[in-house]
């Protein structure tokens, strides 16, 4: 796995750290760590859109950056996306 000097958390820093293998949302992801997508709760339109971009249950991704309170930078299937927090909250993930 890729090492990053500091472990920024993509999400809200006040939240307690995730326990291993627990299901959480994408905003809880620690920057640079790899996770697996478990579920997407977006409604059929958003689901189709996210799937077309490669956000699909079972897929591995990592968060490469985030702007404070703004969107996250997520790398999935070799491409980097900016994804809004509202949307990231609807994507459930699990550590691998």
């Amino acid at each position: 796995m890729r090492k990053w000097g500091f472990r920024h958390r993509g999400g809200d820093a006040r939240k307690t750290p995730p326990i291993n293998n627990r299901i959480m949302t994408m905003t809880d992801a620690v920057q640079g760590e790899k996770y697996r997508i478990v579920r997407i709760d977006g409604g059929y339109r958003l689901n189709s859109r996210l799937c077309a971009m490669g956000f699909i249950p079972g897929e591995i991704f990592y968060v490469s950056g985030a702007s404070r309170g703004g969107p996250l930078c997520v790398v999935v299937k070799g491409t980097k996306f900016a994804i809004g927090r509202g949307m990231a909250e609807r994507i459930q993930i699990r550590e691998i």
Binding site: R49, L50, M53, C73, T79, K80, A82, I83, G84, G86
Partner: peptide, 9 residues
């Protein structure tokens, strides 16, 4: 519109 946008290389 939900915000997802590719950040191309």
């Amino acid at each position: 519109e939900p915000f997802v946008m590719e950040l191309p290389a």
